[in-house]
Nucleic acid binder design. Structure first.
Ligand code: SF4
Ligand code: SF4
Lengths: 144, 144
DNA sequence: ATTTATTCGGATATTTTTGTCCGATTAAAA
DNA sequence: TTTTAATCGGACAAAAATATCCGAATAAAT
């Protein structure tokens, strides 16, 4: 459904959120250990999230990644997915066609549209705050 | 959502179904022209569909691909997807985790499960007969 | 000032997916 | 029986996604 990069992005963001809720910054090393992801690849993905202003970073000793507590509610899974994978999942035809959407819909068009709509709905209505706080045993769940 | 291979497979199957409904066999050349797909790659995919017994083929002159008319109703998009992409889309966790499903569900688990369920439902309830006959201007829609 | 611990960014490597080539096989037509 | 038109199957090639390496930049601690 999502790319690997996007999956790591979601998990990393959840972990960073949990740390930020306790006033801690998360280092790349911590993140990649806790979400069990390849460290260098994760680094690239975190940089994308920083550019998208979903997370923030500071360099140097005691640096790391964090999330503004004011933003916890407004960062949604949808936002992360869009930042990493783009909006193809919400807009693309399930059959990979480019130019027929709408005009002469095939029998699946409406059904696909429904699915995409409900998917979009779920991803947009699930924010990082609820994800991070909902995970009682969050760290273990983010691994493997 | 689906791999390219899977998209081609769905489109090819729809085209073959349309031809079979008129008693015609579809050649690889025809199929790849009508669904606008790379011919040699399409060949591999058709072979997979033949092995999965979703479509049938005969070699030699006047050969080609066809679908048993008795099976038109029972061939679903779900069946094609499973044959080409496997069942990951129905079973995999949206966050790419392996070992947490069920036990200690995270806040999105139930929502993801819902989406997967409705997706599965749509794909299983849409058969090739309805797809092929529903496309009035089918060929054009399968292109591009 | 130097050391240390961190993110950043460019180049490179590996793996997977997508796509190509071509000869072997098959079966009908000539 | 030979030619022709088709699928089959294995090896190969290209592109995209995933992953690694390493030096530069940054900032705190020593
Ligand atoms: S009509 Fe069917 S094939 Fe065309 S864009 Fe919609 S779902 Fe895709
Ligand atoms: S609980 Fe959450 S992370 Fe775990 S399998 Fe379910 S959706 Fe995925």
């Amino acid at each position: 459904m999502f790319s690997k990069a996007c999956e790591y992005a979601i998990r990393a963001t959840i972990y960073i959120a949990r740390q930020s809720m306790e006033g801690l910054r998360a280092s790349l090393a911590d993140i990649s250990r806790e979400i069990d992801s390849p460290i260098a690849f994760t680094s690239k993905i975190l940089q994308q999230l920083v550019k998208a202003e979903i997370i923030y970073s500071t360099r140097g000793q005691t640096g790391g990644f964090y999330i503004e507590s004011a933003m916890m509610e407004s960062i949604t899974i949808a936002g992360i997915v869009t930042a990493i994978d783009g909006d193809a999942i919400y807009t693309d035809c399930g059959l990979g066609l480019k130019e027929c959407s709408g005009a002469e819909p095939c029998p699946v068009h409406e059904k696909f549209a429904e699915i995409r709509e409900s998917l979009k709905n779920v991803l947009e209505s699930t924010n990082i705050a609820s994800l991070a706080s909902g995970l009682k045993n969050g760290v273990t769940c983010l691994k493997r």
